[in-house]
């Protein structure tokens, strides 16, 4: 909640102060029906799959995976965190730049550019080896999210999907806190 407001508030205020609009950040309703039709099933699937991913990844972080009941008990918390985190990253890494890159580069290049920069942000020095998979997921997912954002002309759908893709990472963080 804190980091989402730290990102969204200054980005919106600074862009508006410079003569920009909310639609230039993709902060608009867009094609909501299409967006939700894609994002809601993706969110639910990723929520379920995150349990499997957590079980597989936990040993590489030196912790033991937890059971499904515990993961299910965390579902409301994980959902809120994921749904707050997704739009934050979408605005910061894609919404802020896409239409501004488009003035200079073809769309395919701007999609790739924003995706590479987003993937670079995933890299952490401490867990570099373990996060190579996360970087690859960020690259592939980023390309899909940016296409979804353009298709729906809004951050809603891509924000939900992006948030859902971070659920396994939050689960791992919680596991490291538990152990």
């Amino acid at each position: 909640m804190i980091d989402t407001s730290i990102v969204l508030a200054p980005v919106i205020l600074l862009v508006l102060a410079n003569g920009g609009t909310l639609s230039s950040l993709f902060l608009q309703k867009g094609n909501l029906r299409l967006g939700l039709a894609i994002a809601v099933p993706v969110f639910l699937v990723l929520l379920i799959v995150s349990f499997v991913i957590e079980q597989a990844l936990a040993p590489s972080f030196g912790v033991k995976g937890v059971g499904l009941p515990f993961v299910l008990s965390l579902t409301p918390y994980l959902s809120i965190v994921a749904l707050l985190n997704g739009p934050k990253e979408e605005v910061l890494y894609r919404g802020l730049f896409l239409k501004r890159y488009d003035a200079f580069l073809p769309q395919r290049s701007t999609n790739l550019l924003s995706t590479i920069i987003f993937a670079l942000s995933v890299v952490e020095q401490e867990y570099f080896a373990q996060l190579i998979g996360a970087v690859l997921v960020a690259l592939v997912g980023g390309l899909l999210f940016v296409r979804l954002m353009r298709k729906t002309n809004s951050i809603i759908a891509s924000g939900i999907c992006e948030g859902a893709s971070t659920i396994p990472i939050y689960l791992i963080v919680i596991l490291t806190l538990v152990h």
């Binding site: 980091d3 730290i6 200054p10 600074l14 862009v15 410079n18 802020l96 501004r100």
Partner: peptide
């Protein structure tokens, strides 16, 4: 100037985020 301004906002937000968190 618009793209440079976007990078300024990007850098500022990441820096503030780190300082606060």
């Amino acid at each position: 100037s618009t793209i440079t301004y976007a990078f300024f906002v990007f850098a500022l937000v990441i820096s503030v985020l780190h300082l606060v968190l």
